[in-house]
Simulated assay, not measured.
Amino acid sequence: MSDKDGADDTVFRLENFLCFAVYSANHAFNRVYKPMLDRLGLTYPQYVAMVALWSGDGLTVGQLGERVLLETNTLTPLLKRMEAAGLVRRVRDSLDERQVRIFLTDHGRALRQQADCLPGAMGTCIEKDDADLKALTLDLIAVRDKLLAKIKP
């Protein structure tokens, strides 16, 4: 089917856009995660920050931002809310007071056990085994990295 200019309108069908498939999949992920994260008292960005910190805390705000792909001006208010919830402590670096380091509290560490089921639950939701999930994840990381390489100076 063509529009009045004779252009092929299948080009502009949302189901043909990779970017819309990723965007709408992200939206679906967030909707599935929300009730699970609500039970933990976390938003999705907070969960991502916690996952990064569970791998090793003591990161600077900048280092954490690099890991979770968030700018400092977005991450700082998120970390303040996490600190108010008793999940993390923000501490000025003793060697460089311009740097703020993020440390998990005991409560933040304990939350990991409650969150252990989340990665497996998502695999179950999309009916993928561990090998398929790993392959899909690696494919998406490759796409992300190629796109980011196009915008970095």
Rank of each mutant, 00 (worst) to 15 (best):
Q63P: 02
T60R: 07
E66P: 00
C125A: 10
D116C: 11
L104H: 09
M82W: 14
G120E: 03
C19G: 03
C117E: 11
A49P: 07
L70I: 00
K80W: 08
R101G: 03
R101S: 00
A135R: 15
R89Q: 04
E15Q: 02
P119Q: 11
D106Q: 05
F12C: 15
E127F: 01
R81Y: 12
T60K: 01
L79D: 09
L59H: 09
V88G: 09
R90W: 04
L70S: 10
D130P: 10
K128E: 05
V68T: 05
K128M: 11
D129R: 09
K134R: 13
T105I: 03
G58F: 07
K134E: 03
V32L: 01
P77I: 14
N30L: 08
A49M: 09
T74V: 08
D130I: 13
G65V: 01
D130A: 15
R67G: 05
M50K: 07
V91L: 10
N73I: 04
E66N: 04
A84P: 07
F29N: 11
M122A: 12
F20V: 15
E83S: 05
C117A: 14
A121M: 14
L95Y: 13
T105H: 04
D129G: 15
S94W: 13
Q63T: 05
L42P: 04
V68Q: 10
E127S: 06
C125P: 07
D106E: 10
V100A: 12
L87C: 02
N73R: 00
C125M: 12
L79I: 04
Q113T: 15
A52V: 04
E127D: 14
T76E: 15
R98N: 11
E97K: 15
M122S: 07
L79K: 01
